[in-house]
Amino acid sequence: MHFPITSSPHLQGGNAIRSVMGQVLLALVPGTVALWWYFGWGVVINVALAGVTAVAAEWLVLKLRKRDPWPAVSDLSALVTAWLLALALPPLLPWWQTLVGSLFAIVLVKQLFGGIGFNPFNPAMAAYAFLLISFPADMTHWLQPSVLTGENLPLQETLQAIFQGTAVLGAQWDAISGATPLDHMRTELSRNLMISEIRQSPVWGDFGGLGWEWVGNWFLLGGLFLIWRGVISWRIPVSMLAALLLIAGMFWAVDPQTHPFPAFHLFSGAAILGAFFIATDPVSASTTPRGQLIYGALIGLLVFAIRTWGGYPDAVAFAVLLMNMAAPTIDHYTQPRVFGAREEDHG
């Protein structure tokens, strides 16, 4: 008689990574649709381009490493990386820059360090930083939201602009492109304008940039879904956004004419997307409960510091990358007490 002996766990779920990544992708949909609504087809094309490149690159590298590519490719993690990267890119970025960025994320930042679970840095944000530093001119030209320009660019012209360069749009390009609200705010502040004067511009909505704040709301919805499903913990997003609000509020309270309203920071740029989807990356973020609170709060502070005194259009990518470096140290000092062990046992 043969009794198979197996060690626990005896009940197995499906592919855990695939289900987590699938839910993240699902949670990204509302925000992505909102981006599409305000900025047109470029968003969708970027997601598709980056996604195909990332999956193909993952497959190729795993073949080169003589591993079975199917488990890693089918866990959807490359797709999540590519999707997050694509959301951070300007909608009309030339196609090859999206491609190079996606390759950089998967090949250099993820696979060269050992693939999923081993990358010390968030691949999407590392690739975003790489693109921003390498091609600053293209990376800082965003489209204006359609609520300002009347209507979005039709699909065909979007394709032309992405694949043949924005020069094909001619004079129209200048009319529909511009700096992001965050960039606009910083440029105007550096010209010594008062916030009340800057807010005269039609690009502003209630809190942040027109259109942008609603994109933030939809990402918030997706993020809350992830917390409800238990995919991410509330600690990193809450501590990051709270820290950002707190420090922005302090500066605003001291001098409201040179420091924007705290909610502006929340609903501009990638703060919401970053808090729920990027800073919570299970591989590169801090993993202990107390550590996650510290990690998130420091990202919030860094976001404010880099936005206020730095030179780049948004700070979330740099803040997350810097804190990725600190995460192992934070984890080391915030190990939870093992049940039954006394404090002095830890040394």
Binding site: L108, F130, I133, S134, F135, P136
Partner: peptide, 15 residues
Amino acid sequence: YPGVLLAILPPGAFI
């Protein structure tokens, strides 16, 4: 050729 600024900056040297 558009140029890849990163390669000329210090990170390019490390990579």
